[in-house]
């Protein structure tokens, strides 16, 4: 991107808002409340790849060409994920959250913004090793139908196995990670038996409502892409979905501090951003 392309920040901001408004009104995808700096970066990347010199140009193409919208949606959904990402988080979950979950006859977990499913697989393994998977149901949602389709297959790149094995051990895995997947070509496929309690469903945190009550809601590194108002909306959604003593787990750099629901929650493990509703 060159200087001339978007030197006038006020004009660029206007073009950006019009583009988001157009995408919302034409197609129903609502990115208006997203965090701006990262959104702007990704919109410009799409404009550059399309050979366009302005966000207005991108707006015109998106409005008239649904294929361009598909490409834009792929750019706007961040699907970088890993199994047992932040091993100390998963350790804390097993150590400080599972003991109370165990006292429930049935456990409902919501993984919001599950992307290609690596976190879902991690949680399923942990519930399995703690003997709770049979009486659990994991609801895994994402706004992006394509990544959900990939998540349902349980497949992941074989080259990731070494990292995931290391994470699994660091996260307090008690068995052998190699027992949880089979290898076909350059793909590893997660044991389908462990995914049998998972319900994958399309759900957009920006526009959809609460759909159940959960003992544990996990939403990691999703809120960072939302602006403050949208963050408040989504936290309200989680709040409605959690009973008393329900647990909310956020990403390592996301916090309830300073939010509208803060006062109803106490930290279970502050460093890992695990909170319990009081």
């Amino acid at each position: 991107m060159t200087e001339a392309d978007h030197h006038d920040r006020e004009l660029e901001e206007l073009e950006l808002e019009l583009l988001l408004e157009a995408v919302y009104r034409r197609y129903g995808y609502d990115f208006r409340g997203y965090a701006r700096a990262s959104l702007r970066r990704r919109l410009w990347r799409r404009a550059d790849l399309e050979g366009l010199r302005s966000l207005s140009g991108l707006q015109e193409r998106v409005l008239h060409d649904p294929h361009c919208l598909e490409r834009l949606l792929a750019d706007l959904s961040i699907n970088v994920t890993a199994m047992f990402r932040d091993p100390t988080f998963h350790q804390a979950l097993r150590r400080d959250v599972f003991p109370e979950l165990r006292t429930h006859p049935f456990v409902r977990v919501w993984v919001a913004g599950c992307s290609t499913g690596e976190e879902v697989m991690s949680i399923a393994i942990a519930l399995h090793e703690e003997g709770m998977l049979d009486r659990s149901r994991i609801y895994a949602t994402d706004m992006d139908a394509d990544v959900l389709a990939r998540a349902r297959t349980g497949g992941f790149a074989l080259e990731k196995v070494r990292d995931y094995t290391r994470n699994y051990l660091a996260a307090g895995g008690t068995d052998s990670f190699s027992g949880y997947y089979a290898v076909t070509g350059d793909q590893a496929v997660f044991d389908p038996d462990l995914l049998r309690t998972v319900v994958f469903a399309q759900h957009n945190l920006a526009t959809d409502g609460s759909f159940n009550e959960f003992n544990l809601v996990i939403c990691r590194n999703v809120l960072i892409y939302f602006g403050r108002d949208l963050q408040d909306r989504v936290l309200g959604l989680f709040d409605e979905s959690l009973p008393r003593r329900g647990v909310l787990a956020l990403g390592r750099k996301e916090t309830l501090r300073g939010t509208a629901i803060e006062e109803r929650y106490e930290p279970v493990v502050e460093a890992e951003r695990i909170y319990r509703r009081s």
Binding site: A35, R36, A37, S38, R41, R42, V80, I224, Y225, K253
Partner: peptide
């Protein structure tokens, strides 16, 4: 995490 800058605050991203 990547750190991005807005006029009055910072944003985080786990993009590639």
């Amino acid at each position: 995490y990547h750190v991005l800058v807005e006029p009055d605050h910072l944003e985080l991203s786990t993009e590639a």
